[in-house]
């Protein structure tokens, strides 16, 4: 399945990556190389096979409903590019 620049642009938007026009051709070519290799998967006969999400088929351990995590605000807010009054700041969001 070859992809064109439109598909690349769409994936880039979904992934919130900016792809400049100058990069698109090269990027599409590389992605097509990768997808071309990946397309070998289409040869596999897997109609009767269940997908495997985890190598070990074990079940989720469950945690007791207790508060164990401390308040880390004063530790993490300084890591933020922009913060004020205990909040992380972003450009205005319009709903």
């Amino acid at each position: 399945m070859a992809i064109d620049s439109k598909v690349v642009a769409r994936a880039a938007h979904l992934a919130r990556l900016r792809v400049d026009d100058s990069e698109t051709a090269e990027l599409s070519a590389r992605l097509n190389d990768i997808l071309g290799m990946v397309d070998q998967l289409q040869q596999a006969d897997v109609d009767q096979v269940e997908p495997l999400a985890h190598p070990l088929e074990v079940s989720q351990p469950l945690r007791d409903d207790r508060v164990t995590e401390p308040d880390v605000r004063d530790k993490v807010l300084p890591l933020a590019p922009a913060s004020e009054d205990g909040c992380f700041l972003v450009p205005r969001v319009i709903e």
Binding site: A11, L41, V46, V49, P51
Partner: peptide
């Protein structure tokens, strides 16, 4: 993972993973 390709790629890869 995107709509229309999930089965052909991701799901199929997970099946191959089981094999």
């Amino acid at each position: 993972l995107s709509a229309g390709y999930y089965d052909a790629y991701y799901k199929r890869a997970q099946k191959v993973r089981r094999l």
